[in-house]
Design a protein around this nucleic acid. Structure first.
Ligand SMILES: [Zn+2]
Ligand SMILES: [Zn+2]
Ligand SMILES: [Zn+2]
Ligand SMILES: [Zn+2]
Lengths: 147, 147
DNA sequence: ATATAAATGGTAATGACTTTCATTTAGAAT
DNA sequence: ATTCTAAATGAAAGTCATTACCATTTATAT
């Protein structure tokens, strides 16, 4: 269990949840590689270690981890299939996603001119603005053939 | 059939599709009121005129109307339930949505500072950028009590 | 009026996700 | 170390939006 995972496990403990192999492995998945995963992807990966794990357990724990602020849904629904993606919730690292519509590759970026828009929008509409989501679609260098 | 609807019907004809009551009524729905509708909402409204219409017909025609550029999905998945919303595709009227998370009210706005971000993003990542989606969440004046 | 491909309606299927419930287990109490 | 108990898990059934299938109906060209 690496440092990142053990920090998250601690956070889980502090919230009163028990530590199970299933939970440790689910957390491990999200700390690795790109870290933008669907429940199904987590399931397939964790199953290599715990073959009898249930998909239900994946869904349940993703939900719990969102509740305690460890994970968050990746804004905007899935890439091409209809499933949701999740990632580690990096509160101090506001970012958005640039997605290749051909291969699904996801690039993160933190340029964000929303504050300006937000202020104007708020004064015009009288809404209290809580959050915003920006997602950009395009084709990565490898996928730029044809239209 | 009002002017707006008959324009859209013409567009449909030009694309080789037949004109049916079902199609006229579906188009009518989208030209009225807010015009941000789910398949289920269209179904319920059209059913008042054609009680035997099938939900399948709604889905099929929404898809067809997206294909020919008359409709488009409202960016980002549904309000609170899990269903998709659609609206008339206003090509020359780039806009985004501000949604009240309490009552679902949708406000449209066209402030958009994306071009700046887009250029930088494109030169940094070498992606060809095709589209972007921005959606803002907040609480409307009527719903700003408590947190 | 007739022919025919397209459109429709009803029903079944799909797929992501949730619920239910019987069994197992982490962690506390002894 | 053993026992206890609420929490966690797994298997299976249930939801709900959307799609696929197929027999029947209908818009439009002839
Ligand atoms: Zn991310
Ligand atoms: Zn509201
Ligand atoms: Zn709109
Ligand atoms: Zn924009």
């Amino acid at each position: 269990m690496n440092d990142k995972v053990s920090d998250l496990v601690d956070q889980m403990k502090r919230c009163g949840y028990k530590v199970t192999n299933q939970r440790e492995l689910i957390l491990k998945e999200f700390t690795e590689k790109g870290g933008h995963l669907s429940a199904q992807e987590v399931y397939e990966n964790v199953r290599k270690v715990i073959p009898h794990i249930s998909l239900t357990t994946i869904y349940r724990n993703i939900e719990m981890l969102i509740d305690i602020g460890v994970l968050c849904p990746v804004e905007l629904a899935s890439a091409s299939d209809g499933s949701a993606l999740y990632e580690i919730n990096r509160i101090h690292d506001h970012h958005h996603h640039l997605v290749c519509t051909k291969c699904g590759k996801i690039i993160e970026f933190n340029m964000c001119l929303f504050q300006e828009i937000g202020k104007k929008l708020s004064s015009i509409t009288q809404f209290k603005i809580d959050e915003h989501r920006l997602k950009v679609f395009g084709r990565c260098p490898k996928c730029q053939h044809g239209r």
